[in-house]
Amino acid sequence: MPLTFTLDPAVTPALRDGILDLWADVTNAGGSVGFVPPVSRETVRPELVKHLVAMAEGRTRLLVGLDEEGRVAATAFLALNTHRLMTHWLWLYTVMVHPRHQGRGYGRDLLAAAADAARSLDGIEAIRLTCRGGLGLERFYASCGYKEVGRVPGAIRVAPGDDRDDVVMLLPLT
């Protein structure tokens, strides 16, 4: 059954808690979403608060995918550029699909919904994202239409002696 995507849903305590659970579960399953496992909801909470503040300030938009039971199953944050020379593209952050739903095409659905959401915003011509090298994420994003446009070798230190590339991907929307 497909996910139901909503751009800019009302942030209720249930939604907030669902995103915290999703973020912790994705991280603890090995997902590269800003943390190294193990994490708890309380570890993730300060980062979610930063995203929620950016949403309240109008700098970030939230895309949420709910499963058939109404649980948060996927998210992506669309961060608008404030630099006057770069307002024609946005960043896609914290792209997550719950591990219980992986392998069903929901990641592709989430990226398609994010592209549709970006197209609905005035003047947005492209989406940029970064991903952690060494996990095959570049291949997944490329299969969804993104192109690698930059790479910083060893920019992400997962652990001492375990440095990964920071890979920049771009999806033109026009």
Results as ranks from 00 to 15, higher is better:
Glu125Ala: 14
Asn81Val: 08
Pro172Phe: 01
Gln102Trp: 05
Arg104Trp: 00
Ile19Ser: 00
Ser40Ile: 02
Glu57Thr: 03
Leu129Pro: 07
Tyr106Cys: 06
Thr82Glu: 14
Thr4Asp: 12
Gly103Pro: 07
Thr12Pro: 06
Leu90Ile: 03
Val11Ser: 07
Gly134His: 09
Thr75Met: 15
Gly136Asn: 14
Thr6Lys: 12
Val152Phe: 04
Leu80Asn: 00
Ala56Phe: 06
Pro2Leu: 00
Leu80Ala: 11
Pro38Gln: 11
Val168Leu: 15
Leu15Phe: 09
Asp166Ser: 14
Ala10Lys: 11
Gly154Phe: 07
Tyr141Glu: 11
Asp8Ser: 06
Leu66Ser: 05
Asp21Trp: 03
Ala10Glu: 15
Val33Cys: 11
Tyr106Gln: 12
Asp25Lys: 10
Leu121Arg: 02
Ala142Tyr: 10
Ala24Lys: 10
Glu47His: 15
Gly136Arg: 11
Thr94Gly: 10
Arg139Trp: 05
Asp67Leu: 10
Ile124Ala: 05
Gly70Gln: 11
Val53Tyr: 11
Leu135Trp: 12
Pro13Ser: 14
Ala14Leu: 12
Ala74Gly: 07
Ala114Asp: 10
Asp109Ser: 13
Arg119Asp: 05
Asp17Trp: 02
Val36Leu: 02
Glu69Asn: 15
Leu111Ile: 11
Trp91Gly: 02
Ala56Ile: 03
Ala76Ile: 08
His51Gln: 08
Arg71Ile: 00
Glu47Phe: 14
Thr87Ala: 01
Asp109Trp: 02
Arg59Pro: 01
Leu63Glu: 04
Leu3Met: 07
Asp17His: 12
Asp17Asn: 15
Leu80Trp: 01
Asp122Pro: 14
Asp8Gly: 03
His88Val: 06
Val39Pro: 02
Phe77Asp: 03
Arg119Leu: 02
His98Trp: 13
Phe35Ala: 05
Leu110His: 04
Ala79Leu: 11
Ser120Phe: 00
Glu138Trp: 05
Leu15Asp: 09
Arg157His: 09
Thr75Ile: 13
Glu68Phe: 07
Glu68Val: 15
Pro160Gln: 01
Ala142Phe: 10
Leu173Glu: 12
Leu80Thr: 01
Arg108Val: 10
Arg100Met: 01
Leu66Ala: 06
Ile156Asp: 09
Val39Asp: 10
Thr174Glu: 05
Val64His: 00
Asn81Ser: 13
Pro13Gly: 07
Leu22Met: 14
Met96Gly: 08
Val149Thr: 14
Pro99Glu: 01
Arg41Glu: 09
Ser120Ala: 13
Val33Ile: 15
Gly150Thr: 13
Gly107Cys: 02
Trp89Asn: 10
Thr43Gln: 04
Ile127Met: 12
Leu85Arg: 15
Ser32Ala: 15
Gly150Ala: 02
Arg45Thr: 11
Ile156Lys: 08
Leu62Asp: 01
Tyr146Pro: 06
Gly145Met: 08
Asp8His: 04
Glu148Phe: 08
Leu48Arg: 06
Met55Leu: 14
Leu63Phe: 08
Thr174Leu: 01
Ala117Thr: 06
Glu125Trp: 00
Glu138Phe: 07
Leu80Arg: 04
Pro99Arg: 09
Leu171Met: 05
Lys50Val: 10
Cys144Val: 02
Val53Ser: 14
Ala155Phe: 13
